[in-house]
Design a protein around this nucleic acid. Sequence first.
DNA 1: TCTCGAT
Length: 590
Amino acid sequence: MELWSEISKDQKKFLNFLLGNSGSSWNSGGQQSSFKSSINDNEGSSWKSGSGDFGLRGGKRGELLCAVSSKWSGGRGSRGRGGYRTSFNSGFFFFPQEGNGDGVTAGPKVVYVPPPPPEEESSVFAHYETGINFDKYDDILVDVSGSNSPKAIMTFEEAGLCESLSRNVTKSGYVKPTPVQKHGIPIISAGRDLMACAQTGSGKTAAFLLPILQQLMSDGVAASKFSEVQEPEAIIVAPTRELINQIYLEARKFAYGTCVRPVVVYGGINTGYTIREVLKGCNVLCGTPGRLLDIIGRGKVGLSKLRYLVLDEADRMLDMGFEPDMRKLVSSPGMPAKEERQTLMFSATYPEDIQRLAADFLKTDYLFLAVGVVGGACSDVEQHIIQVDQYSKREQLLELLKTTGTERTMVFVETKRSADFIATFLCQEKVPTTSIHGDREQREREKALGDFRSGQCPVLVATSVAARGLDIEHVQHVVNFDMPSSIDEYVHRIGRTGRCGNTGRAVSFFNPESDTPLARSLVKVLAGAQQEVPSWLEEIAFSAHGTTGFNPYGKVFASTDTRKGGSFQKEPPQPAVQNTSAAADDEEWE
DNA sequence: TCTCGAT
C-alpha cells in the first residue's frame, strides 16, 4: 500500500493502460482530465485484480515476470517534455504479495543483498553445464605473431600449476586446454604482453586467470588482512557489470582454498559494501571502469603493487565510450608504466584502428594471438536475414517466437526504451519475457539474467549490454530485432548462440530504410560463414556502394595483426563467422 | 545509441 502511494498519476495511468483497464490510454500525455482513473490514490487493492491480464506466467502469485525498466520514459508528459524521468526509481512493477508485505521493496534506496559467502565449496563450483565439445577444438587454427613466442603447451600439466590450482581446474570440469589456453598460458607465464583475438566461450578467461594466479601463488602473494588501502597485484576490467561478474566467478573458482583473494566491484550496488569487500583483502580486482576509478579515486585501492592489467572485450574498452576511462586508469597515480607491468587484451573482434590505439597500452614487443574457429564450430550458427519494414517488425517477431516455443531466445534491440516496449508487448501476448538494459536496477538485471538462464523466462529482450561475452548455455536463437550499427556488434551478438558444439540460429530483421549501410559487410560475413545470401540483400549491398562510394560502417573487424603491414598477407584459415576473410578486403567490390 | 559512478 505504501508502495502504491509513491506512484504518480502518470505511472498509474500507464499501468492502467497496460492492464487494459477501460478508459485508459497511454499516448495522450497531459490530458489528465479525460483519464478516468480506475486505480484510486487510496486503494492498493486494484493491483491484484488486474494482474492476471498482464501476461503473468509461472512464479509465485504476486510476482510479475515481465520486467520493464524502473526508470521508464514518461513520453511527452504533462510537464511538456519527454525523456527519461529519473526521479522515480523504485521497482513499482513488483506486485505486493498477499499477506505480509515481505519481499516488497519500494523507494529508491534498494539495498543490494549479495550472494551467499563464497566459502561454500558447492556454490563456488556450481557451474552451468558446459556444452564444450573438446574434440572440435582440435580443428581450430591458431596464429601467433610477434617475436620469440614461447612454445604452446598441450596439457594443463605442462602449465606448471601448483597443486591447489590444478585441483580447482579439475574440479571446474576442465579436461584439456583449449587453443587460446594452449598458446595464451605460456605467453603470459613468460611475462609477455598479449593481444588475443578469440571468441568468448573459447576459454579465454581461464587463459589469463590461470597463469596470473599461478604466478601470484608461486610468489607467495597472500591477501593482507583488513587495511585502509588495498594494493592488488592484478586488475581486470570489462565493459559490463554482468560480464565482469562472470569473470570474477571464474577467478573465485580457481582461487578457491588459496591465499589469493579475488574481489569484484561494479556500480548499481551499495558503494560501502563494495569498499568493505575490497578492504578485507584483495589481490585480483575485477571491475567495471566507473566503480573501479571511483574507489581508486577515493584512495581505497593503491596501484603500486600492480603487475597485471587485463582488458576483456578490449576493443570495446578502447572505443569512444570507454577510452577516456581507460586512459584515466593507466594514468592514475601509482599505476606502473606499461614497461613495468604486464598488459593483456582479449576480444573476439579487433578493428584495425583499435589495434593501433591499443599499442599505447602495450609494450612494443607484444604478441598477437589469433584463434580462428574452423568451419564446424561457427557455421553451427545458421544466419537468416529477413527484409522487414519498421512497422511489421513486432508481428514478425511474434510469428517467429511461435516457432521457437520454449527454446531460449535473445532478442536484441537498439535502445533501452524499445527494450521495455518490446518486453511489455511480448508479455501482453503471453510470451514469458524478461529484459535487460542499462536503465534497469542491478537487482532486476541480475534477476532477468537468472530467469533467462533457468529457463523461467525463455525470451530475453536486451540492448547491447548483453551482446558481449555473456556465457549463457543453450541459447538456441538470437533475433536482431534492430540491426546493430556495426558489423562487429553483429558478430558479438550472434556469438551468444551456437556456442562450442551447440547449434544455434540467428534471425535478423533488416530494414532497408535504416540498415543499408550495413549491407555490404553483412554480405561478406554471411558469405564467409557459408551462409545463404538473399539476392535482395546483395542488390542493396551493390547499389549502396554505387551511390555512396563510401561506407561509414565499412569499418571491418580483423583477426589479423596490423603490424603485418596493414594488408592481409595470409589467407585466414577457413572462413568463419568471426574471421576476417569475409570482411578483409574491399577490392572485390570496387 | 549503447555501456560506465553516485549525487
